[in-house]
Amino acid sequence: MNNHPIEGELRDALAAHAQKFSASPDAWQHVQAKNAGLSGHRRARSAPSGAGWLARHRAFVVPAAAAAAVAAVALGATAVAHGFSGTTQPGATAYASAKPGYSPALVSVQVKLPARTMAAGSSMPAQIIVDNKTGHAIHVNGCGSLFQLALESDTYHPEVGWPLCLQILTIAIGKSTYPVPFTASYLNCGPAAPGHGTTHVCVHGRPPALPAGEYRVVLFQSHHVVSAPAPIPVTVTPVRSG
């Protein structure tokens, strides 16, 4: 087989590019942990993921919150059991748990809103920009998404939960942008005359719109990955009739 004209350049490029990938000093420990079957190290193959899944199953999210909290505790214990030292070696892999193995100051987050006013019941396509300056990708045991945004006020404090599945969610090195839409609606609802707690009566199977007023957009995290940014004030206006 005759050499192709670009073979030489291709070999040089591959050799040079390969040098950019290095091995972290604790890689062997990670392999052993994976081999021991610690579930947090495995990728979930068939678990649903993404904000779309979350949006479609929102009604399920809050009822599952209590169970998710239990799972979160278990996952935190798993991550601790992996023996992460908290060092931040270049190219190393970090797993976030209740106590991140990196300095939260090296991971900043910014919430971007396209507007500061929204109609009750409407949705706003917000974005969360995470800047990971730790020098390594951060892996978090979670399900669907790391972040959610929700509106809260002095009198309304949303109960945000996550669906139950086990995935390893990765925050890449550098800036990553996550679309995190939120709605000016309650996050949960139930049948008529619920008679318990803060459950609101569903309207056409969906949570009802929030009453008009002054709210704050608050960031919720499935695990403590970043220091929470300051809430952003948002005005919810009444639904236009007709």
Binding site: K20, S49, G50, A51, G52, W53, P125, Q127, I129, A172, I173, G174, K175, S176, T177, Y178, P179
Partner: peptide, 13 residues
Amino acid sequence: KIPRAVAEPSSEQ
């Protein structure tokens, strides 16, 4: 599923 996801390149990219 998430058309607008991850628009900005990572520092590695």
